[in-house]
């Protein structure tokens, strides 16, 4: 009881501290130097219409590399953790309803296509590799829900994941070898703004990321599902 009051008091204190961000901050009327630079120069230097993508993949590409790594580590950890021996011991899951399984068969390819569209067009419209990958994983989630006893071929997914990751790193290294900097997207021609094949290596990178994320998240879902089915 007293502990809760203490927690409440501390959090109120934290809240007051944080509220200075509202009270002390002056409303911005124009962009600070950094984003202004991005706004003005993305088209020329990076060639991507979606500025956020340009920042993520090129300007702060190193962060994205880290982000991809985090997902990889999480997936690896979950795979390692939940590797149980006897998987098929007491599997008696309730079969899914007819509506679900029928709808799944229809929707599965559509969702995947949509996901692929999102990550392929990441440099032109809102979206990108992560978003697309998440959408693809949703498709697999739907599949899992509809086929509770199904066994996913996670070998293929793992290979996909690994190769995508490796290629991503290779692209970065190519940038170093060519002397333009790690993860510089101008190793491929920048092309014309607004077209699908523009912005240099960005579509390639984002597609790789999309596939990787999709594969990883699906793997995670698969492992979590496996454990559940044991009970």
């Amino acid at each position: 009881m007293y502990k809760n009051i203490l927690i409440l008091a501390l959090l109120v204190g934290l809240g007051i501290l944080l509220s200075t961000a509202i009270t002390d901050r002056e409303e911005n009327t124009s962009l600070p130097e950094l984003p202004a630079y991005y706004a003005d120069n993305t088209a020329k230097e990076v060639g991507a219409a979606n500025m956020v993508t340009a920042v993520i993949v090129t300007y702060r590409g190193f962060d994205t590399l880290g982000e991809v790594t985090i997902l990889f580590v999480s997936a690896a950890l979950i795979a390692m953790f939940l590797k149980t021996g006897n998987r098929r011991k007491n599997r008696n899951p309730r079969p899914s309803s007819v509506i679900l399984s029928t709808a799944q068969k229809l929707l599965f390819p559509l969702i995947i296509l949509f996901g692929a569209y999102v990550f392929a067009n990441g440099h032109l419209t809102p979206g990108g590799g992560f978003q697309g990958g998440a959408i693809i994983a949703t498709a697999f989630l739907l599949w899992l829900m509809a086929n509770p006893e199904g066994e996913m071929r996670h070998g293929i997914l793992s290979s996909l994941e690994a190769f995508s990751g490796t290629f991503y790193v290779i692209i970065g290294v190519v940038g170093v070898i060519l002397g333009v900097g790690f993860l510089n997207n101008s190793i491929l021609p920048l092309g014309e703004l607004g077209r699908l094949f523009s912005a240099g290596a960005i579509p390639v990178i984002y597609s790789l990321i999309g596939l990787k994320v999709g594969a990883e998240l699906s793997n995670i879902l698969h492992h979590l599902n496996e454990v559940q089915n044991e009970e």
């Binding site: 600070p32 984003p35 003005d40 500025m51 920042v55 993520i56 962060d63 985090i70 999480s74």
Partner: peptide
């Protein structure tokens, strides 16, 4: 004049990373 028209893209990029990190954790 894009710098007069757009909101700040940097935090949006950062939040993408943060969301993914949150997912991982």
């Amino acid at each position: 004049n894009l710098s007069q028209k757009f909101v700040d893209p940097v935090p949006q990029a950062l939040v993408l990373t943060a969301i993914v990190i949150g997912l991982g954790v």
